[in-house]
Amino acid sequence: MLQFAAIILLMLGLYGLLTQRNVIKIIISLNILEIGLNLFIISVGYFEGGLAPIFTSETPANPNFVDPLPQALVLTAIVIGVGTTALGLALARKIYQKYGTLNLDEMGEN
């Protein structure tokens, strides 16, 4: 069920990325796209009745773990996401200092 929500989030993120004219709104759309993509990648490895991939003292003999590889990929993707968001926001602050606006349409006028 959640992978369909993730696909809709991907579509909404792409739509926002193409239509918004405000720099902050573009970065927000990029974040929504990223959350949708992360949920989708995790849902690829999930199946009903699977266990979280951690050995504890109560783990049964032949454990039925969900796929741990997508989780490792998403773990690093989230941290890269905060790096790209910080860089984009720093660029947005520089753009505001130079043009006095955050809107892409009003930038060429002065």
Binding site: L10, M11, L14, F40
Partner: peptide, 15 residues
Amino acid sequence: NFLALLAALGLGVLI
């Protein structure tokens, strides 16, 4: 906006 909507829908259909 309509073209953007079309692109987003195309992405969803492909997935």
